[in-house]
């Protein structure tokens, strides 16, 4: 652990807030009408999965957590848990699903991710920025209203539904942005 000033909190850090590890999602400079500056931090409580927001005085001290990262391979979903395996020693590890939240839908077979570990517990999962996924269901394009012009919903192998161009067919492999869950391109092998 190392102590930093709240004004130096950055997106992507892990910090201790109310004695729990939190992952920093967003920070914002805040200046009240009169008075010293604050740093507004949006963060995820890694134990409960809840998103919280707090305004720290920029000069406050905050503990930044040293987390360990470990490359692991996705195996399968098991109820409220997700099972990963260390490809070097085949050791398996279960992670509560809420840690990934909606990003659980980005997991495809054998995808490699980085688990972040703090105090011998997994508190986060870092996905590659883009993943390849196969389309399992794509209907023939129908002319839609103006809002959806040129796009249609298609279902991916993980159950994720994305808005894709009309020419996408079942069996196509698509590149998906894991941050926004948006279609990037079709992969032509």
């Amino acid at each position: 652990m190392s102590t930093i000033k709240a004004g130096n909190i950055k997106k992507g850090m892990y910090i201790l807030y109310k004695e729990q590890p939190h992952y920093v999602l967003k920070t914002q400079f805040v200046s009240p009408g009169k008075g010293s500056a604050f740093t507004r931090v949006k963060m995820r409580d890694m134990r409960s999965g809840a998103n919280v927001e707090f305004n720290f005085k920029s000069h406050d001290s905050v503990e930044e957590l040293d987390v360990e990262t470990k490359e692991m391979q996705f195996l399968y979903h098991d109820g409220n848990e997700i099972v990963f395996m260390d490809p070097r020693n085949y050791e398996q590890l279960s992670v509560p699903r809420h840690i990934l939240d909606e990003q659980a839908l980005m997991l495809t077979s054998e995808i490699k991710v980085y688990l972040t570990i703090y105090d011998e517990r997994v508190i986060g999962v870092i996905l590659p920025p883009k993943v390849r996924m196969t389309v399992t269901e794509a209907h023939e394009a129908v002319s839609g209203d103006r809002q959806t012009a040129g796009k249609k919903p298609v279902t991916m192998e993980s159950g994720l539904i994305v808005q894709a161009p009309l020419f996408i067919k079942t069996g196509d492999v698509l590149l998906i942005d894991t941050e926004t869950a948006a279609y990037v391109s079709r992969v032509n092998d």
Binding site: V30, P32, K34, G35, S36, F38, R40, N55, K57
Partner: peptide
């Protein structure tokens, strides 16, 4: 002043 602002925010 610091506490007032922090509670307000």
């Amino acid at each position: 002043e610091e506490l007032y602002n922090q509670l307000f925010l």
